[in-house]
Write a protein that binds this DNA or RNA. Structure first.
Lengths: 149, 149
DNA sequence: TCAATATATTTGTATATACAAGTATTATGT
DNA sequence: ACATAATACTTGTATATACAAATATATTGA
């Protein structure tokens, strides 16, 4: 029994008026779509995005990765661990600072990574329409910015 | 080091144009706000919502809970386990079907649970404004419905 | 100059959720 | 009426993320 067991539309749920519920349900669906898109490079979306940041900013530090990815430091550490195991990034340490670099293997992967980003965006647009996609993204950005939490 | 370490606005992130990224970042913030609201009853938002469904539909079956909460069966099982440990629900089994009932303790909790729902909704509205909240919820519902995933 | 504080990162552990395989029951087609 | 398939649920295990405490280094103010 897989996702197919969830047949009902979110908007028909008892809780379709609750921001917590609706935003989390949407995020789970997006996570799943994104996972699909990044299977081609055998990475999860968050690993892929972190890697992209590192390739495009060699020597970037974990704190910057936190800001860009909106994730906690411990989460960044965990993501990096995995990418290091896969020989896609390497870390150097100077004092309390860490610099993160892409390996040659990672740099070779860049075109494929970019393709995944494009593919995912395509999927969104083809399912939701360009208008709707842009509107929602804008809307979510505006709301997120208002939340200090 | 806590959330305070994420200072940047989401809309300023490199990935603020990506639906996956933006929806997940928003959901994490909402999750955190909601956790706060439901601390008063010492339940996580998903446990609280499941419990509410059970109180309002005594005898409800796990599959219906899946649909309403848009969660996989295994997740529903896990949520129920915890609520059962806390003596808030009880299950009866007839054949392959399971019926879930609220305990008296759960029923007593109902007013408080409703208060939490109201408080969370209040928080959203006070931070985001009524207009903005409604618009976003509507928007997210519409998009979710288009995603079969 | 050194104790107190602040900063950057990691580690141990926890929560939320899911997939896949397993179990048990019911329905179906021949 | 019985083998096969479908359904409902659970269990084992995995992923994504976080909090809190620990570690290590850097800054600052007396």
């Amino acid at each position: 029994m897989s996702l197919l067991c969830i047949v009902k539309k979110i908007s028909e749920s008892h809780y379709s008026k609750c921001m917590y519920f609706v935003s989390n349900a949407l995020a789970r669906k997006m996570e799943k779509m994104a996972l699909e898109s990044w299977k081609k490079v055998n990475l999860s979306p968050s690993h892929a995005y972190l890697l992209l940041l590192v390739i495009e900013n060699p020597g970037i530090q974990p704190m910057e990765l936190c800001e860009e990815l909106q994730l906690q430091p411990s989460t960044i550490t965990r993501l990096m661990e995995k990418l290091e195991l896969k020989k896609l990034i390497a870390r150097t340490f100077e004092g309390r600072l860490t610099n993160v670099y892409p390996t040659p293997k990672a740099k070779e992967l860049l075109p494929k990574l970019k393709q995944c980003v494009a593919d995912f965006s395509e999927s969104c647009i083809s399912i939701l329409g360009k208008e709707e996609s842009l509107k929602l993204i804008q809307n979510m950005n505006r709301v997120s910015d208002k939340l200090t939490y």
